[in-house]
Design a binder for these strands. Structure first.
Lengths: 233, 233
DNA sequence: AATTTTGTATGCTGAATAGCATAGTTTTTT
DNA sequence: AAAAAACTATGCTATTCAGCATACAAAATT
């Protein structure tokens, strides 16, 4: 269980952009209605077709947003890190979730009722702008990703997935080991290919000295080459 | 050139949802800053990497939003009909356009400076909500489309494209001829396949008595079958 | 610690779809 | 209305990628 103090720190000391724009009164409203949840590895936070109810705030851990497709094949849509927000889109669109989310690793999340978020948006322009900005960013990203996934070849898609991991979670202290350890299957689900092909293509990247692999530990040894493959492949 | 009266009709008589939520003063502000543009068939409205400046309102005609990918292959992201709005996402995200738009057929559009739209959002909650809702809908649609395009087979993708055309533009008076005549290449660009494969797959749909084809005129003769292929294919 | 389960690596095979060529047709331009 | 350009239809071939099988390795569970 996260300490109440940790939570208050985040909200009151404006550690995340979103809270810094609230009035003290609004901060109190949020703090009083913020419920902490702990999720185990691979535990579902919400599932496709569920009715949206909460704004989720990832405090600690890693979360994936995904959609189950044909034959149980999963497509990972987005990855989240602390402190980021999700779960609000479907509520705003007034429809059930079109995707699911689960914890990649043991994670701590806060849930705030969307009714309260709505109430605050109604009285605070800046929060409205926060969501307009956030949604606009995601929409551009989704459109771009669509074209990348449909048009790039396997090498390009896997290279792009690796750059997404770099950009989202960064490196360990050595400056080259990816700070996320995911199964090959997840890597495949992120880059729209089968697990076999993710494994195969990783191997060729190793033989080309672009990465090294030690179990799930991936080191990026030639990032420019990787980004080049991602861009043109 | 569209008549000023037509424009005023749209804005003052609340023919489109968006305007009905404005105060009279705001309506005036919009009407005074609304510039009508005519676009020829295939003319570009704005292009990828351009800096966004206007909210575009499609008054008459048809518009496609697309992204140019590898080897000049285009992916159509969304289709617009009167009276719908676009061009605002990149401005809200504070970034250049990630996609382009062009007129499918001779079209009339209105352009309003995004600065003015921003000013109105700042003073009118309802307009903020309009965009939050709109962006949320589009984001859900984009995520769903991504999975459809990457996971469905060719038949399913083409069937889906046809249902998108039905849902966006409907039928002629006969109740079965699609009210949009697009080149096979555009149909291919909508469903992520080559032109050859769009033509081939259309032919098999004809032989299966799901559609009939007369040049670019497509009649949907078995819509349930089409939707079934779209869903499970 | 042993056993079971799950994940990784690699090879082989087949299916799906892209690419290209050619002929005929429609649309656009002059 | 004629000429040019663009589009459509179909066949054949090449490529990419998925599917499956097997062996091995690593994790998780008992």
């Amino acid at each position: 269980m996260i300490k109440k103090s940790t939570l208050e720190k985040i909200i009151k000391e404006d550690l995340a952009e979103i809270w810094s724009i609230l009035t003290n009164e609004e901060k109190h409203l949020v703090a009083d209605n913020f419920v902490i949840h702990n999720f185990k590895k691979n535990q579902i936070i919400y599932a496709e077709n569920d009715e949206p109810e909460y704004l989720w705030c990832l405090l600690k851990g890693k979360v994936k947003m995904f959609k189950d497709g044909i034959g149980g094949r999963q497509q990972i849509l987005r990855l989240y890190r602390p402190i980021q927000y999700f779960g609000y889109r479907a509520y705003f669109a007034n429809e059930p979730y079109v995707s699911s989310t689960s914890a990649f690793e043991p994670s701590q999340l806060g849930a705030i009722s969307m009714k309260i978020v709505t109430r605050i948006i109604d009285q605070n322009r800046k929060l409205a702008w926060f969501f307009i900005h956030e949604l606009s960013k995601h929409l551009g990203g989704s459109d771009t990703k669509m074209v990348n996934l449909t048009q790039k070849h396997i090498r390009g898609r896997l290279a792009e997935a690796l750059t997404i991991l770099i950009d989202n979670y960064g490196f360990e202290d050595d400056g080259e080991t990816l700070k996320i350890y995911m199964a090959r299957e997840d890597l495949a689900n992120l880059s729209n290919m089968t697990t076999s092909n993710a494994i195969r293509t990783l191997s060729t990247f190793v033989s080309e000295k672009i990465i090294t692999v030690d179990g799930r530990r991936i080191k990026i040894v030639n990032e420019p080459a990787l980004r080049k493959i991602s861009k043109f492949g």
